[in-house]
Amino acid sequence: MFGQANQEQQPIEQDVKPVVQPASLVSNETAEQWLFKLKRALTKLHFDAGVISTKANKTESFKWLHGVINGEEVESIAPLIGGGITTIRKGKTVSFIEANKQVYSVEARSIRNFIPPVFYHDIDVLADSYQFVLVSKNQIGGRPAQLIRIESRDNTTFNYWVWVDGESGLPLRLEFVDQSGEVVERMLMTHLSVYTEPTADMIKISELDLPEPVLIGIASNKDTNDWLMGWLPKGFELIKSDRHHVSISREVSDYYLYSDGLVEFSVYIQRPLESFKSPIVLQDGATSFVMINANGFDVTVVGAIPAETAYKVATNIKRK
């Protein structure tokens, strides 16, 4: 089946599912079915997990809790090492809690940390830019795990590998993998307990009063900016664009946010900095930061895409 999908000379058939799927006869479930199982597990199960996420040479560890109480999802992701931000979600309200800071909320369907939001939505939106490949089963922490590779169709974005727990359907391991097969960012579950009933911790979260979601400094969806994107990686669509004061420095910037469903990148166009030596390319795990100077303005592209892709986007931006 995978051989067929890779045949570039038949682009029309590539997106059409064959009537008979040899792979499905062998392993019973397709990659799509596994990802559906993953979505169901993420939103329906009561579980308590330990998670380690590794970016470049930086490691973070979290306690991850999810339950459903009276039909409403409750979730919390708290750093095991104190001092970080604890994120709590009840239904569609996500609150950020930090010591000595005022708690605030935003509206979102999932906590954006180590799980891409698309896993909570309809995975089919990825079909344009990625192909799902069902790979062999193996063991992670003594549990049977099914590896699904979400592979970039034109190699402009990272590949995303997901190991789904055979029993619960939860993600045991998630990796951003670059084109040379190198892992650039990894999330690994260190323990997992699935419960039949909500635990005391979950009930405690459901009883919390979270502040009302507030919108602040959020780009609206007005395409009023005068910039032309000369090149975009395949499958990326404009989510929003505006002109706003960026956080911290309050510098004014023309802003665009693009997404292909799995990852996003932001484009900032600002007045030039005198002292800055173009270009700057930074990499932190899967996140690339590219800032270049182009004829009287500075362009910055930041997001979970390879630096080459970000650089190509930045250099192809023109005035309308």
Partner: peptide, 27 residues
């Protein structure tokens, strides 16, 4: 340098802020 550094910091944090509320808007 410091100017560039502070712009890098603010753009990275702005990007993260924009993402926090991006999901449901798209949805």
């Amino acid at each position: 340098n410091q100017m560039t550094q502070s712009r890098i910091n603010s753009l990275i944090s702005d990007h993260q802020q924009q993402l926090r509320v991006a999901d449901d808007k798209a949805e």
